[in-house]
Amino acid sequence: MDELLKLSGVVTHIGSYHILHGVDLSVRRGRVTMLLGRNGAGKTTTLRSIMGLWKPRAGSIVFDGTPIGTLDTPDIARLGIAYVPETMGIFSQLTVGENMKLAATTARFNAARLDDVFRFFPILKTKWNDRAGLMSGGQKQMLAVARAIVENRRLMIIDEPTKGLAPAVIDQLIACLLELKARDTTILLVEQNFHMAQSVGDDVAVMDNGRVVHTGTMAALARDTELQTRLLGLSLAAHQ
């Protein structure tokens, strides 16, 4: 299986802070890669560096053979990369429908794809004409994910989608991601929720202090509690 995204020695500073110290990471085509690590390990910065929101000072980021490390964010997004940030990033003044339309590259939605979105998140259909800012946190997160899947993307980058959400909403998100995974969608997912990580993850990369310190399969990490404790500081089973 070939690599869709490859980061080599990526170094990123935010202001005077040196956050990423040479990140090496591969995301294989058609697989869900989990990016794990303690708070402050550099996971979100890695995602933002991929999207060009923070420009790397050194290293290379190659997406499907194209170097994207120096491209502007809109150009990176137009290559077919969908990004769901940690803060959801929905547009609260716009309606749910308008939020969705912004994510579509064509004037009309793909009907089958929109049906999928409504099947995953039925609430979005009923709130289609409501202002997004008036929705609950879980509904906003559904909208953020829905925006990423309303069209076929080559890579989805999702940052902690379950943060602060109720278990029922998390189950909905897991069901959605599992179906996307079954369709060979390539996903890079940062997640603290072990239940979700274990449910959807194929591969895993663990970050610490601005570097990737472990790569392997999610299944292997899930079995090895000693490795979990060494890499993450605690057993994943205790962190659901």
């Binding site: 964010t73 809109p74 137009r78 990033g89 003044q93």
Partner: peptide, 21 residues
Amino acid sequence: PFGRVLQAIRENEFRAQALGF
């Protein structure tokens, strides 16, 4: 749609860029 993009940019520049605008 152009006006909606303007509103999106006003509200969240980063997010609008990440959508390709």
